[in-house]
């Protein structure tokens, strides 16, 4: 295992048994997570973002299993762990996850404070009294006003944004190496979203953890991610640094995602959306999974699965367009000057 990497995934397949048949939700994913980086995973809903990260913490549902490949975390082969007892050493303390819905992530009948201290006691081996102090500290850090008083309140007395702050505080109390944020802002309104993103960034600087940030909204990641992985139908179809994905993307699906950024919509013009729907997981996918929706599809796209073509050392894309024999294709006009656009927009603000 490379020293730089904290998590290495090789040729991972995850499948579910549904009414007697196997469906493949994750197909041949390889991925390295570097220490202290923020990796964003982007894709339409249903593309397998949650399933992929659930596999990292052994939280796949009963009917799911890793059918191929390996996951390594700091010398532990996670893909070999079977029972919850083994996972107990990883979850929380090493890899913690926060979920989309802050309204239901907290136990409704325990106080906010007790839910934070519970974790402090467990992972930081403190007494209850010390834990309370640490918990109040964390509440202040995550921006809860009046933390001492609000320690004894219940989740229903908190707003959605406040609850997500608490969820983050709880995750922090675990002192994890890796924090998986599974669409942590999707359920919140826009202004709160931005605050929560800022909070996560600040805390990362202070506590130095690695982040996997899942979202279906490319717009969100620009401000937070170092690298971006784009997922489609259980596959990573392009991965690169933030700049590479925004300004030099190579996969038509990524182009589509970028073109539908709300920031690019001019007044009076309709927002672009991608025509067609993702393939059903119940049929075996032949060739490129994106081919049926791809306006640049070639005949090879319907026959053979493309490999990961290397663009740079950090940039890879899974499309036959990068094959030497493929015709040269210009990316759509709207996103050609994306850099310019982005600069203009920041200037306007």
């Amino acid at each position: 295992m490379n020293d730089e990497n904290i998590l290495e995934v090789k040729n991972l397949n995850v499948s579910f048994r549904v009414r007697g048949s196997e469906i493949e939700a994750i197909h041949d994913i390889s991925l390295n997570l570097k220490k202290h980086e923020t990796l964003a995973i982007v894709g339409e809903s249903g593309s397998g973002k949650s399933v992929l990260t659930k596999a990292f913490t052994g939280m796949l549902e009963q009917n799911g299993r890793i059918s191929h490949g390996t996951i390594d975390y700091k010398g532990t082969r996670l893909s070999d762990l079977r029972v919850n007892k083994q996972w107990d050493k990883i979850r929380g303390k090493e890899i913690a996850t926060i979920f989309q819905d802050p309204m239901t992530s907290l136990d409704p009948i325990h106080t906010i404070g007790s839910q934070i201290s519970e974790v402090v006691v467990k992972h930081q081996k403190k007494t209850k009294k010390e834990a309370k102090k640490i918990a109040i500290d964390l509440m202040e850090k995550t921006g809860i006003p009046n933390a001492v008083k609000r320690y004894n309140e219940y989740p229903f007395e908190y707003s959605g944004g406040m609850r997500q702050r608490i969820v983050i505080a709880i995750a922090l109390a675990c002192r994890p190496e890796v924090l998986i944020c599974d669409e942590p802002t999707t359920a919140l309104d826009v202004t709160i979203q931005a605050q929560i993103l800022d909070l996560i960034k600040e805390l990362q600087e202070e506590y130095k953890f690695t982040i996997i940030f899942i979202t279906h909204d490319l717009g969100v990641v620009a401000s937070i991610a170092d690298r971006i992985a784009v997922m489609y139908s259980g596959r990573i179809i392009e991965i690169g640094t933030c700049e590479e994905i925004f300004y030099d993307s190579r996969h038509p699906y990524t182009w589509n995602l970028l073109s539908s950024l709300p920031q690019l919509a001019r007044k009076g013009e309709e927002l672009k959306s991608i025509p067609g729907t993702p393939p059903s997981l119940y049929k075996k996918i032949v060739g490129d999974a994106f081919a049926p929706r791809n306006q640049y599809a070639m005949s090879v796209d319907f026959k053979a699965e493309p490999p990961m073509f290397k663009v740079t050392d950090t940039h890879y894309a899974k499309t036959w367009l990068l094959d030497k024999r493929a015709p040269k294709i210009q990316k759509p006009e709207v996103i050609q000057n994306l850099h310019q656009h982005m600069l203009e927009m920041t200037a306007e603000n």
Binding site: R91, G92, E118
Partner: peptide, 8 residues
């Protein structure tokens, strides 16, 4: 789920 993910 969240309780499990925080390591309980």
């Amino acid at each position: 789920k969240f309780a499990r993910s925080k390591g309980l």
